[in-house]
Design a protein around this nucleic acid. Structure first.
Length: 496
DNA sequence: GTAGGGTTAG
């Protein structure tokens, strides 16, 4: 059985077992009138506990006194919950470092290192690496992938490459695998020029393979330079490496991204004509590519064609199709497809819902958008930060700030922590009504985001400071100025 | 976390 078919069947099976479970509890429950209340997840309860304790000392005591039996999996789930409050996440991690019985696993160290890196707290990051080493649980190649990514996205790609070249000094030798990882990280962080240079210097040393070439070709495609991608692939073939299906999919996507729709279509026809194996990724790429330029008819045709040819769509295919229908057709037509996928036994995921909810918001159907958000929970498909951000953004756009703030407050409680986008959207919205109270809210939100390790841009700082000065709230303004000077993002006038 | 398909909007 092909992997594709297997994926389809397993997702159907999941849904069927869900139905069976419901039927089972309906027939066997002693009191079907009182359905069992859903228990809050353990990691959610713990995350709330952590968010309420302000210092490491009180937290350590609280955790020592509690009878939680820690496991690497539980610690990872808690860290995931606390993802958008980096300082609290690290405090939690460190408070367990001296636990009497529990010892952190390698993967938990990786998470903590990732969080420290995002906070640009490199001292903590390297202290954690050293600690991994003394515990003899790392650092692993994955740890180095995380560190490399954090340095690249902090604008230090040279440093990132140096770290990669020194990883063997940490007992972690470089190989083709880790070479490809670094190339991919550089490409995905918009450093294709550097990735290509690095690739050319080391391709013989690491015996670059099809995957290395695909990564580089994809890098060029990401910045719409399909000609460069083709050049790289030509060289690959000259070296005797055979293109894979991924190679074709990379190039196909590259044509669409670069707006070379005709080339994309010709290329798609060509690979079919040559009898190359086409898979669901190829079809999804074409459906999305045509849809996004408004060619809904063609997208639909390809969607029908794949089914006719026995290539079953996946949830991702549906997500792509639903998204383009929302954007270039009509949200009602998108919902028809949404219902169709559900009736066929597919389980919509968070992205499916987010795409539909965004489509409804865009059509001004905020109430229906909120209905779908409620439906997510019923479907055991918890809304994520993106779900909240979409709804908050659109409430802000329509000037319903009270509703935006109401949704924002629903995020409180540890289950879904706001991220940097949430704060930026809300703070920006506080300037439209010119109400003094809104300035105070903006000021508080700014303080809150800084406390969670999200650094606002200088523009945001200045805007909020101005607003507070205009309404005469000098106290909050001073507090913010203090935070800003600690962060090093001083207003230009204050420099020197 | 060795590659390819599905989220924001200006």
């Amino acid at each position: 059985m092909s992997l594709l078919l297997f994926k389809q069947l397993s997702s159907k099976r999941r849904r069927n077992s869900h139905f069976l479970l419901l039927q089972h509890s309906f027939y066997h429950s002693k009191s079907p009138i009182n359905p069992p209340q859903p228990q809050p997840l353990q990691e959610s309860v713990i995350a709330n506990l952590i968010l309420r304790n302000s210092t490491e000392t009180t937290l350590t005591q609280t955790l020592e006194n509690s009878s939680i039996s820690w496991s690497p999996d539980l610690v990872n789930r808690v860290l995931k919950r606390l993802w958008n409050d980096g300082p609290k996440a690290l405090t939690f991690f460190q408070s367990l470092e001296n636990h009497q019985t529990y010892k952190h696993s390698s993967s938990s160290y990786d998470h903590a290192i990732d969080i420290a890196g995002r906070l640009k707290d490199y001292r903590t990051l390297w202290a954690l690496v050293a600690r991994m080493r003394t515990q003899r649980i790392g650092p692993t190649p994955k740890t180095f992938a995380i560190i490399t990514e954090r340095y690249v996205s902090a604008g230090k790609p040279d440093k990132a490459v140096k770290i990669f070249l020194s990883m063997h000094e940490y007992g972690c030798p470089q190989d083709l695998h880790s070479f490809n990882t670094v190339l991919d990280i550089l490409c995905k962080s918009n450093r294709i020029e550097m990735a290509y240079h690095f690739f050319k210097v080391f391709r013989f040393k690491f015996r670059a393979d099809v995957i290395s070439y695909n990564i580089i070709a994809n890098g060029w495609c990401l910045i719409k330079k399909t000609a460069k991608a083709l050049e790289v692939l030509k060289e690959m073939v000259e070296r005797g490496l055979k293109p894979s299906l991924s190679t074709y999919n990379v190039l196909l996507k590259g044509y669409f991204r670069a707006g070379q729709i005709k080339q994309a279509w010709d290329f798609f026809k060509e690979i079919k004509r040559r009898g190359c194996e086409i898979d669901v990724v190829t079809y999804t790429t074409v459906i999305h590519g045509f849809g996004i330029v408004g060619e809904i008819g063609k997208a639909r045709k390809v969607f029908d064609e794949m089914i006719k040819r026995g290539c079953l769509p996946t949830v991702e295919t549906y997500n792509a199709f639903i998204q383009v229908l929302c954007k270039k057709d009509n949200v009602e037509n998108a919902i028809v497809i949404f219902d169709e996928m559900v009736s066929k036994g597919y389980v919509p995921n968070q992205m499916t819902y987010n795409v539909v909810i965004r489509g409804l918001c865009h059509a001004g159907e905020m109430d229906r958008a909120m209905e779908y958000m409620g439906r997510m929970k019923e479907d055991e498909c918890e809304p994520n930060v993106q779900t909240f951000n979409v709804v908050i953004r659109y409430y802000c756009d329509t000037g319903e700030l009270e509703k935006a703030l109401e949704v924002f407050h629903k995020m409180d409680g540890g289950a879904y922590l706001p991220n940097v986008d949430t704060y930026n959207v809300l703070i920006g919205a506080m300037f439209v009504r010119k109400k003094p109270d809104d300035m105070v809210i903006a000021g508080r939100l700014l303080m809150e985001m800084v406390g969670k390790g999200f650094m606002p841009r200088r523009f945001t700082f200045n805007r909020v400071l101005n607003g507070l000065t205009v309404i005469g709230n000098h106290e909050l303004a001073r507090e913010i100025l203090r935070v800003q000077s600690n962060s090093g993002r001083l207003p230009r006038a204050f420099k020197i």
